[in-house]
Amino acid sequence: MHVRMLSGGLAAACLVSLSLTGVQAAAAAPQTAAAPLAPRVLTYDAGGSAEFRSAVDRGAAIWNESVDAVELRPAAAGQRANIRVLADNGWPRALPTTLGNGTVYIGRQAVDQGYNTVRISAHELGHILGLPDRKPGPCSSLMSGSSAGTACTNPYPNAAEKAEVEGNFGDLRVGRAPAARAEVIVD
């Protein structure tokens, strides 16, 4: 008991001396804000995207600038990618398997008709991120795809599209499994 009283008196004396010197003593406040969750990293392999490689990289960068819940990175050599990107002579399309996984085709047919390659890339990656087509739609909607016309070069998702991707991947960041998707999305 004597030790307890002595240490209590010592603590009181320290607080008094600190207050006399102008220093405030405060208990450390518990951290109430949750630490931000790390983004879900998805890798992509654009090795088969031929002349569209820079457009694919730019489309991925646009998604990285636009959302926090997911990050698209080029796959390292020998690493199996979540997303494969290929160029072909058909119309652009995406074949999602599960959320964040699948194959994207950057079709030369749309490019030959005058559609913007970066918009095509960002749009098709949007399908892999769980977004459906929203046709017809305005140029301000990335997922309006070809219905916005060849004059539309906007490669950025709008606020609703960003929020939908954040919601899709927010569940994954807290441990919920992605749903299987077995559909071909032809734009």
Rank of each mutant, 00 (worst) to 15 (best):
R40H: 11
G9N: 07
G8H: 03
R58K: 15
G90P: 00
C139I: 03
G100D: 11
A160N: 05
P92E: 07
D57T: 11
G8V: 01
S54L: 04
T153A: 13
E166N: 07
T43D: 06
L99T: 08
A75D: 08
A76D: 14
P92A: 06
L86W: 02
D187L: 15
N116M: 02
F52L: 02
V111N: 04
H2L: 14
G47M: 04
R80T: 15
T103W: 01
R173T: 10
V85D: 00
A13Q: 02
D133H: 15
L72V: 05
S144C: 09
E51Q: 10
A69P: 01
S147G: 07
P30W: 04
Q24V: 10
K135Y: 09
N168M: 04
L172R: 13
A33P: 00
A179L: 12
P96Q: 06
L20Q: 14
L86I: 13
H123M: 04
A163C: 06
V67I: 10
A26T: 14
A25S: 13
S17E: 10
S66A: 15
L95W: 02
S17M: 11
R93D: 03
L15H: 02
P178V: 03
R119A: 10
T21S: 15
C14H: 01
M143L: 06
A151W: 03
A163L: 09
A55K: 05
E183T: 15
S146A: 15
L37V: 14
W91H: 11
A11Q: 08
D187I: 12
L15M: 12
P157C: 05
S146R: 13
R176M: 03
I83F: 05
V3L: 14
G167F: 01
T98E: 13
A151T: 12
